[in-house]
Design a protein around this nucleic acid. Structure first.
Lengths: 130, 130, 130, 130
DNA sequence: GTGGTCTAGACCACA
DNA sequence: GTGGTCTAGACCACT
């Protein structure tokens, strides 16, 4: 499990961890039922505080992406993943509006914007000058 | 100039103001050279502190979307707007990756995701059950 | 008398006027005893407030670069110009320290810095990539 | 880390702080990666408000001289410092032109001016009567 | 304890 | 009246 943290980023570390776990699941690196490293070991790996890792796990558990087992520790939700809720759709729309608005002002073409969206969905690295 | 604030939102007020101003420019409600309300009057309008408005203005000035004109006060950048910089593209990609990853995990189809993107770019309100 | 104002600049308009008058004298465009445009006409020319022009003139008069005659109006100091006072030297040093410090941090070579200084003194436009 | 403020100066306190930090980096007192005092402690040290210190830090962060590290607080840019940008060169030229113009009018010799420039770059205190 | 955000109220330079 | 600066005090998220 690769994980890169940006300690200068404005987004909190626990959020970065959570997002990268979600990405891992999306990419299939992490499959339903897979065990995640313990809070302790991941914290040691990333050289950060236990609480921080724990908060990331708790957040994802809260949203239904992870489960905490007494014996197996933390595992990727083996049952049904949360679906496309209204809340999620709202979040997506709000962010997309802001992003696209700035894109428009900066003179980005719709085509270019949509290509970025498509590439992101398909995990492609959109290259410069392409 | 309509502006709606969600004081309970996790995103800071000054960010909300900045985003709505960008949206205003994107929609054409605000045109290059247009004067914005003074920090004081907008603050009074929104019933918030003038420093909060000021921070929004300063942020956008810093990024090149606004200018502070010694005679006209704060105005929408009358010259060339900042273009699609590498930094902006980066921000877009990072957000789109996180957004789409969660979408994928939640079982959202690529088609649906792209429709949301397209609608956002074209300022449409994607309706539920459509 | 050419004069260019930057209404977006952080330095006040009256300062910009004063500096350009000093430059005019330094370049020899304005000679001791030369009459300057009246406050009214210069304000009209530059499309700014009377007070602003007046403040520029007053500042320079205060420092001894201009004189105000009842009949001739405002003229460039026909007698002895103020010399290199301790106060002036101080101002120069303070600004040079700050400028050069930032230059050093940005990796500017001493040679490059001094060339800029020399070119400035000789009213040359230092060209890019030279 | 020594720091001297002139509360009567026309240049704002936060600018003075920023300049002295840059000087500290230029002199090598502050090295890349070094942690700076927290806004609170520096504010207490200087007996000023923490927001004033914060503004100095934010300004330098914006320009790329400082970073806010989630674990270490505010640190001197550990990576590459911003280089000699066109914007910086512009600023230097503008200031040098104004400074040297006044020097010329006051009858300062080119030699003397350049010595001041050189001494500033090399952190020497040019003494009176030298 | 750290930085980030927000409020409230004040003074000043500028136009 | 405008933005710029400064102070003071408060709450919060994060580590």
């Amino acid at each position: 499990m690769f994980m890169e943290l940006d300690l200068q980023s404005e987004s909190p570390i626990y959020t970065q961890i959570a997002e990268q776990l979600i990405e891992g699941i999306a990419k299939g690196d992490l499959k339903p039922g897979d065990a995640l490293p313990s809070v302790r070991s991941l914290a040691a790996d990333l050289d950060i505080n236990l609480h921080t890792v724990n908060k990331a796990y708790q957040t994802l558990k809260q949203e239904g992406f992870l489960q905490v087992h007494r014996k197996k520790g933390v595992v990727v939700q083996p049952g049904e993943m949360p679906g496309v809720t209204a809340g999620f759709k709202d979040k997506v729309q709000r962010q997309l509006r802001a992003l696209s608005a700035e894109g428009i002002v900066r003179g980005m073409a719709e085509e270019e914007f949509l290509r970025l969206c498509q590439d992101a969905f398909n995990r492609k690295n959109t290259k410069e000058g392409e």
